[in-house]
Computed example of a mutant assay.
Amino acid sequence: MSLALSPALRDALEAWLAEERAIDGASEATIRAYATDLRGFLAFLADYDGEPAAPARLARIELRDLRAWMSHERGRGLGPRSLARALSAVKGFFRWFGKREGFEPTAVLSVRSPKFTRKLPRPLAEDAARAVIADLGDTPEVPWIAARDAAVATLLYGSGLRISEALGLRGRDTPLPDMLRIVGKGGKERLVPVLPVAREAVAAYLDLCPFDLVPDGPLFRGARGRALNPRMVTRAMEGARARLGLPASATPHALRHSFATHLLAAGGDLRTIQELLGHASLSTTQAYTAVDTARLLDVYDAAHPKA
C-alpha cells in the first residue's frame, strides 16, 4: 500500500492524521478508520493512473476520478454507509490539503454522499430496563459479581455511560459524587448525574468485592482481580435477557439508549441529552426523537386499530 504514495504525500497524510488527533480530538479508532479509508482511496488513484499518487496529482483531481473510485468501491461490495464514511474522510483530507497546497478541491467537496437509512437506537422499555438490573443483582452463584454487574448496569442506564466509560472508572472516583466527570470519545469531558440508586449499587458492590480498592486501580474487577473485561458485562446481559425473554437487542449499550429515550419521553431537552451523552453532533442525538415518535405511533395503532 505504501508504494501507492509518494513520500511527500505519505508525509502529508501522517500530518493530517496527527492534526485530527491533536486538534480535533479524534479517537484512535476514528484515526485508524480515516487512515484506512484515505489510503484505500489513494491506492485506487495510483492504480487508476498507473503511478504512485503525488501532491500535484491531487491538485488536479476531477469529478470523474471520484466517480470512478466510488463505482469501484460499490463493485467490491462496500455498502452506502461505509462508502459515506470513506468519502467523509477523503473530503476532510482534501479540505486540509487544498488549504495547505493552495488549491480549491471543488471536485471532491461537490460529490454527494450516498444515501442510506440510519439504524434507529433500540432501547428497552422502562420496566424491562429495571428488570434487567434486578435480575443481574439476583444471580446467586457469586454475590459480589452479581452486585458488580448490577452496579455497572445501573450506571449505564442511570447515567447514560458507555460501557468503556463505566469500566474506566478508578478507585479514586469513589464514593461516587452527585456529578461525575467523564472523559469520553476523543478525550472530550462532560459531567453526568449520578442518581442515589447508582451510588448505592456501587457501594453495595464495594462492600462485597474481595479485592482492595486503590486510587489508580480499576473500580470494577474481574473474577481474578484484574480490570473487568467488557465481554463479561455482555455475557451477563445475555444471561439476563435469556431469563427474562428479552430480544437480542437487549445489550449493555441498549441501556444507554434507554437512558436517552426515557429521558426524552419524560420531557428532557434534546440539547441537554446531547451533553449528557457526550455526542459531538446534535444530529446523533436526534435519532432518539425518531425512536420516541415510532413508539407513539405504535401506541396509536394499538389504541386505534384499522378496520
Rank of each mutant, 00 (worst) to 15 (best):
Y300P: 00
L66M: 15
L9W: 06
R95G: 09
R85V: 03
S71I: 08
L195F: 14
T289S: 07
A204S: 12
P52W: 14
L156R: 03
G222P: 11
A150V: 08
F220T: 05
L297Q: 13
F41R: 00
W69L: 10
R181E: 15
V291R: 03
C209T: 06
L161I: 10
R295V: 11
G186S: 07
P230E: 02
I145G: 00
R81S: 13
I145S: 06
A131S: 14
H72G: 05
I273L: 15
G245R: 04
G186V: 02
M1S: 13
D49F: 09
L276T: 00
L263P: 04
P218S: 01
D173Q: 00
L83G: 08
Y34T: 01
I273E: 06
P143Q: 03
V111P: 06
P210R: 08
L156P: 08
S71K: 10
A146H: 03
I31Q: 14
S249M: 01
Y157Q: 04
A8C: 05
R118K: 13
R60M: 14
L208N: 05
A26F: 15
K119I: 00
S283P: 00
E200H: 05
T139G: 02
A131C: 11
T117H: 12
T117P: 05
A147S: 12
G184Y: 07
S6I: 10
A201I: 10
A153F: 10
T261E: 07
A151R: 01
S258N: 01
G187W: 12
R172G: 09
S249N: 03
A146N: 06
L191R: 08
R67C: 11
S6W: 09
S88A: 15
A203W: 03
K115V: 11
A302D: 13
I273F: 10
L255T: 02
A227C: 03
L120M: 06
L3E: 15
G239Y: 01
G168L: 05
R224D: 10
E73G: 08
T272D: 14
P121W: 13
R235V: 06
A153T: 02
S71Y: 06
G217Q: 09
P121Y: 07
V299K: 01
I31Y: 02
Q286T: 08
L3W: 11
L167N: 10
I23C: 09
R226E: 15
T234N: 03
G268R: 00
A131Q: 14
V111R: 01
R271K: 10
A43G: 14
V108R: 07
L270E: 01
A223T: 04
T30H: 01
G137W: 02
D301H: 13
S113N: 13
A26S: 10
A29P: 02
A287Q: 13
E14S: 06
W144T: 00
R21F: 08
A18W: 02
P196D: 14
D24Y: 12
